[in-house]
């Protein structure tokens, strides 16, 4: 199937999954996993950078419309998309992506993916929770939220990846 169509489907499914199911997970009021980041993480590696930014902005805005916080998620995902090329470089070091179209668990391995998602998720959560409180006054609480939410987000993202990449191998 066409890459673009796959990405559009991924966009819709992840946003709906986020707002209809994951947003209702309530663990003590501090844990807010955001699995829709997976959309930005899995975008094609050689995608033009400006498209990457627009995709990040778009998925953030879509989630914003549902949560009633225009600009909040969009701001965080745009920054995350902005950082993605550098994070890819940082995480993979000398590794080249010659034959790889988009980040793929089978080809790049679990350890690579965990490092990749830790960087991406931290950038996103940091921006999101600071923008949300809109001040540095509640810094302690913000840090607590980040430290509690990021592991859950990373865990969920890895779970989803393992679920779906095993399907791909069978095909």
């Amino acid at each position: 199937m066409n890459r673009t169509i796959i990405n559009i489907i991924r966009f819709v499914v992840l946003v709906l999954f986020q707002v209809l199911i994951v947003n209702h997970i309530r663990l003590g009021g501090y844990v807010h996993p955001y699995i829709y980041l997976l959309f930005v993480m899995l975008l094609p590696i050689n995608m033009p950078k400006w498209q990457l930014l627009l995709c990040g902005f778009g998925v953030g805005l879509a989630v914003d419309l549902f949560t009633g916080t225009p600009g909040l998620h969009a701001g965080a995902t745009t920054l995350m998309a902005f950082c993605r090329p550098s994070i890819l470089k940082l995480v993979s070091g000398n590794q080249k992506f010659e034959n790889i179209q988009e980040p793929d668990l089978g080809q790049l391995g679990g350890v690579w993916f965990i490092r990749y998602s830790v960087c991406m998720v931290l950038v996103h959560h940091f921006t999101l929770f600071i923008l949300e409180s809109f001040s540095f006054k509640l810094m302690g609480q913000v840090l607590l939220r980040i430290l509690l939410s990021a592991p859950v987000t990373i865990f969920l993202i890895m779970m989803i990846l393992y679920l779906f990449s095993s399907n791909k191998k069978k095909e």
């Binding site: 902005f57 914003d64 009633g68 225009p70 600009g71 909040l72 969009a74 701001g75 745009t78």
Partner: peptide
């Protein structure tokens, strides 16, 4: 990037 972030901040401060 800067343009998009400015839009976000504007939306956010309006809300």
């Amino acid at each position: 990037f800067i343009l998009l972030e400015v839009i976000c901040i504007l939306l956010l401060s309006r809300s």
